[in-house]
């Protein structure tokens, strides 16, 4: 059985159908990149996985649990799927260290000592060993996003969801976040990444989805799809993001 299984998933906001009949499976250790024009449904697709959006049709199974399941199932899905947001969404009243300790303490039931050890270890891993005592407002965008990645990892998810993790960052800060993501990919984390970073998708991705109007128009090898776009839609999209 696959790690993720979309069968006939549709998502409507009122009368607007944002995702249409999505059928898709993702296995563990896949690094799936999702690209597509603004409004094509990339974020919505991602957010259906951890049930920040509820699907309106079909079914979506995450590691054996349906997103239509009980509250407990949904919480378990969320423990399995860490999420990184475009706007970081760090807790502003907590330091970097406390942000990363938050998950272990509040959802994994770790002791303070365990949580602190894990958080320190993860912050060192994302290159912020010297920034642990800083509040989010005292960190650069790239540092905030790396903290957010560490915060998600601290819950020990089996999969990571990234929604345009570098879009809010200045170009010179992006590589530090991408570096951390590449390292995660190398370690075998299952990842689903919405991004406009085509070069990164080509280098790191094992799979590329091109969304168009709420459907998956292409699903294939990133290098192949990007080098030789099979449709005019994709080539014109790629020209626009250059």
């Amino acid at each position: 059985m696959s790690f993720l299984e979309f069968s006939g998933v549709a998502k409507r906001f009122g009368p607007v159908e944002v995702l249409k009949n999505i059928n898709l499976t993702v296995d563990q250790k896949e690094i799936v990149f999702i690209i597509g024009a603004s409004g094509s449904g990339k974020s919505t697709l991602l957010r259906c996985i951890n049930v920040l959006e509820t699907i309106t049709e079909g079914d979506l199974i995450v590691d054996g649990l349906s997103v239509r399941g009980t509250r407990r199932d949904i919480r378990r899905i969320r423990l399995e799927a860490g999420m990184v947001f475009q706007q970081f969404n760090l807790f502003p009243h907590l330091t970097a260290l406390e942000n990363v300790m938050f998950g272990p303490l509040k959802v994994r039931g770790s002791s303070r000592g365990e949580a602190r050890d894990l958080a320190e270890q993860l912050l060192v891993k994302v290159g912020l060993g010297d920034r642990m005592a800083n509040y989010p407002s005292q960190l650069s965008g790239g540092q905030q996003q790396r903290t957010a990645i560490a915060r998600a990892l601290a819950v020990k998810p089996r999969m990571m969801l990234f929604d345009e993790p570098t879009s809010a960052l200045d170009p010179e800060l992006r590589h530090e976040v991408l570096g951390v993501m590449r390292q995660l990919a190398d370690e075998g984390m299952t990842m689903i990444v919405v991004t406009h970073e085509m070069k990164f998708a080509r280098d790191v991705g094992t799979r590329l989805l091109f969304l168009e109007g709420g459907t998956v128009l292409h699903d294939g090898e990133p290098k192949l799809l990007l080098a030789d776009p099979p449709s005019e839609r994709l080539s014109s999209f790629l020209r626009h993001v250059h």
């Binding site: 969320r78 423990l79 947001f85 760090l90 959802v107």
Partner: peptide, 18 residues
């Protein structure tokens, strides 16, 4: 409070009241 903070909490598996 920005909606994103609530989503970050929910996405970690925290129930709404927490």
């Amino acid at each position: 409070v920005p909606k994103g903070l609530q989503e970050a909490g929910l996405a970690m598996g925290l129930p709404m009241h927490r």
